[in-house]
Amino acid sequence: MNIIGKAIKYGDDINTDVIIPSRYLVLTDPRDLAKHAMEGIDHSFIKKSKDGIVVAGKNFGCGSSREQAPIALKYSGTRCIIAKSFARIFYRNAINIGLPVLECESLWDSVQDGDQLSLDLKSGNIKNLTRNISSQAQVLPDFILELIEIGGLLNNLKRARV
């Protein structure tokens, strides 16, 4: 799976409360959640999120178990999140809803907001097309790649029931 998009850069410890503030968790339509994605720290996110690739520092998605966090990002048009590391529950939730997540230590330093990135999910190879720099993300295990490719765990559960 190849993904191309523009980098949207954030720092360390981006938590679920800023990804989708609690007061919006009563909303049930994913498109409504998406309108408030990253609102806690970046009101301009939703204007640039279509086909965006979020590039973040350490511990992305720390905090609550709210699946509304990766849902808001997915429905905002975000194609993928590449972080130095992820918080545990967010990482699982993102994969479960079919939002690709990659861990890459080296990318962050060499990327600027708005850079055009191209990545191959299977190999973990990331190309910064704007700056002509390559980075290597950790390769995802096959079962996780498969979950992302079929669009998440629900599709797996549906298959298992057929």
Binding site: G63, S64, S65, E67, I89, R92, N93, N96, L157
Partner: peptide, 23 residues
């Protein structure tokens, strides 16, 4: 809910998960 880890207080293994995992 992420604070599910509370029940370790009595020696259980308890952890928070998302809604899809819960499905």
């Amino acid at each position: 809910d992420s604070h599910t880890c509370t029940y370790g207080a009595i020696g259980a293994f308890s952890t928070g998960i998302g809604s899809t995992d819960m499905t």
